[in-house]
Design a protein around this nucleic acid. Structure first.
Lengths: 125, 125
DNA sequence: ACATCTGTTATAGTTATAGTATAACAGATG
DNA sequence: CATCTGTTATACTATAACTATAACAGATGT
C-alpha cells in the first residue's frame, strides 16, 4: 500500500484483493479482515476500506454476511459477459493508441500481456 | 467529447489527439487548433485545453512554437523505452488480474487487443 | 506603429472526490 | 448483556478538475 500514490487508497485496495484472487492466494470461501481491523492494520479510516469492499461486493468478488464478515465469493467471480468485454476494450483503447504512436508493435504488446498473465498462472506458489 | 463523463475533460482530449495520431488522421507536422479556438469549439475553458496540450507536449506528442501554434511532433512520437514499458505493464496489470478472475482467457484477451490494434492499422481511411 | 493572434502565467472561485473523524444502529455471538 | 460485525449518517479537511478573468510576451499582418 502506497499512501502517497496518486492512485486512491480504496482503488489500490481493490486491485490488491483482485490480484490475490487471481493468484489464488485468496480462494472462494476465504474470509477477509473486517473493515475495522483492516483499516487499523494499514492505518487508514474505516470508510476507506468500506468503500473498497462495497465496490468489490457490487462486482461480485466478495460476499458480506452481516455478522460473519467478508468472504471471497464461494461461487467464484462472475464470468466475463458482454458488458465486461465492452468496458475492457474501452479501457484498453488508450493504451494501445499510445503504443501504436510509440512504435510499440502488436507482437511486443501481446508479449507484455502474456508475461503478466504468466504472473497469475504460476502454479504452486 | 463527453462533458458528463467521470473521465476528466483534459484526459479525454489527450486520448482523442493520441488516437488521431495513431490512426494517422494527424500526421507529423500537422497543426492543431489554438487553445482558445479549441476551447471555444468544444465549449470548455482555455485552461482545460492548455492542460491537455501541456501534458501532450511533455510526452513528446506535440511541439509548441510560441506564436506559430501547436504542431504534431515532426520527428514523430518518441519511441517506446524501458520506462514506458514498465509503466505500461503496471497499468495493464489490474486489467489482466480482473480478466483472470473472470475466466477471460489469455487467448481471448489477446484477441481483444488484436482487434483494437486493427482499428489503428487500417490503411486508407 | 498598432491591433491581433499566439502560448503562458497568475489569481480566484466553484464543484466534486478522497479521506478522516465520530457517532450511532442492527443483527449475531459468546 | 457486552462485544463483534457491516452499515449508515454527519461533518470536516484537502485536493483535483474546471471555470472565469486578466495580464504578459513574442510574432504576424496591415
Amino acid at each position: 500500500m502506497d499512501l502517497e500514490s496518486a492512485e486512491p487508497i480504496y482503488i489500490q485496495l481493490q486491485h490488491q484483493i483482485i490480484e490475490g484472487i487471481a493468484k489464488k492466494k485468496l480462494l472462494p470461501g476465504d474470509s477477509l479482515p473486517s473493515v475495522r481491523s483492516l483499516a487499523s492494520d494499514i492505518g487508514v479510516n474505516l470508510h476507506t476500506v468500506n468503500k473498497a469492499y462495497k465496490q468489490l461486493k457490487q462486482d461480485g468478488y466478495i460476499l458480506i454476511h452481516r455478522q460473519k464478515g467478508v468472504v471471497v465469493n464461494p461461487e467464484g467471480v462472475p464470468k466475463a459477459d458482454n458488458s465486461y468485454r465492452e468496458l475492457l476494450a474501452k479501457n484498453l483503447r488508450p493504451y494501445i493508441a499510445e503504443a501504436v504512436c510509440r512504435g510499440f508493435t502488436e507482437e511486443e504488446f501481446i508479449q507484455t500481456c502474456k508475461q503478466i498473465y504468466s504472473n497469475f498462472n504460476e502454479r504452486g506458489e
